[in-house]
């Protein structure tokens, strides 16, 4: 029962935001902001899930996941310009995500395996800046748009049209939570990943093939980053800088799940999105909207770390 308390906390945050910020305004208008917030929150959650999957398996908070996603969707856009069929460009984006992630995961990450988690995270930030630099070099600033066929289909929810692409994001976030939980909890490789995250040295001594298992984790995280990049490029905007730094609110969502619990990442991401969107309704508070993910993540850290293990520290 106590495991449900954090979920209730995030739900309460969303409800409280609605009651405080939407009071006195027409429900037809506030409903739009609520649905919009859920849509953006699901994107944060999707990014956060990718971060947590890798962190649970390797102990690395991959701050380059946004940059990998940005490079992936820019490549997909470029292929579209060259008249490559859409489905091939999407597959290519995911494969590019896998390739970039594996590049770091196999070449650089093992050399930092014994360093503190914060050092490992900062190293991925360096990788992010390298990818961002190369992406900016390859594609100069210009007006571009990336769209998917599912953008044209949608349904009305509380007066707001929700496209099938956004439903795919929500569905993918939920499906990933379930599938990855099953994978980590019920498969031998999943068990090995959890063992690696807990203690790399002991895992090696009991015969876990570290590089192989870590490679699978990095590849999986890269695929999620590639897919997330496609969604960000379509639903946010096709701007490598914006997509690269979407990793920040995604990390806030990941922290809501204490870099561990995928269900809480989803709940936290949605709560952040709703609170952030509803802040727009306040003339006083709308200017602090961009800080919402960090304020919420900081509150989560303060409330949930009491008498529990520390984030970014070995147990």
């Amino acid at each position: 029962m106590t495991r449900l308390i954090p979920y209730a906390g995030f739900a309460a945050l969303a409800v409280l935001s609605y009651l405080l910020l939407a009071a006195g305004k027409p429900p037809a208008v506030t409903g739009l902001f609520l649905v919009s917030g859920l849509a953006v929150g699901s994107l944060y959650a999707l990014g956060g899930i990718g971060l947590v999957v890798l962190y649970r398996a390797t102990g690395v908070l991959n701050l380059a996941s946004g940059a990998i996603g940005a490079a992936a969707v820019m490549c997909a856009w470029q292929l579209q310009q060259w008249a490559v069929p859409g489905w091939l460009t999407w597959i290519a984006a995911i494969l590019i995500g896998v390739a970039l992630s594996l590049l770091y995961g196999r070449l650089l990450a093992p050399r930092l395996a014994w360093r503190d988690p914060v050092v490992k995270a900062v190293a991925t930030l360096g990788f992010a800046l390298v990818i961002l630099g190369l992406t900016a070099f390859a594609w100069e600033d210009d007006v571009r748009k990336f769209s998917l066929p599912t953008d044209a289909m949608g349904l009305k929810l509380l007066g707001m049209r929700v496209t099938v692409t956004r439903l795919i994001v929500v569905g993918a976030a939920v499906a990933m939570v379930a599938a990855i939980w099953l994978y980590l909890e019920r498969t031998r490789t999943g068990l090995q990943m959890r063992a690696l995250a807990d203690d790399r040295g002991v895992s090696a001594m009991i015969g876990v093939r570290i590089l192989r298992v870590e490679g699978i984790a990095w590849g999986l995280a890269g695929a999620i980053a590639g897919f997330t990049g496609l969604m960000f490029g379509d639903l946010i905007r096709l701007d490598p800088v914006i997509i690269t730094f979407m990793v920040i609110p995604s990390a806030a969502a990941a922290i809501c799940g204490r870099l561990d619990n995928l269900g809480l990442v989803l709940a936290g991401g949605l709560a952040i999105g709703v609170a952030e969107s509803l802040l727009t309704l306040s003339p006083v508070l709308k200017s602090v909207r961009p800080t919402a993910p960090f304020v919420i993540a900081a509150l989560v850290l303060m409330l949930m770390q009491r008498n529990a293990r520390l984030l970014f520290a070995k147990d």
Binding site: S36, V40, F232, S277, T280, L281, R289
Partner: peptide, 9 residues
């Protein structure tokens, strides 16, 4: 990142 909120506003 969220253009929707400005549009809704």
């Amino acid at each position: 990142p969220d253009a929707n909120s400005s549009l809704l506003e």
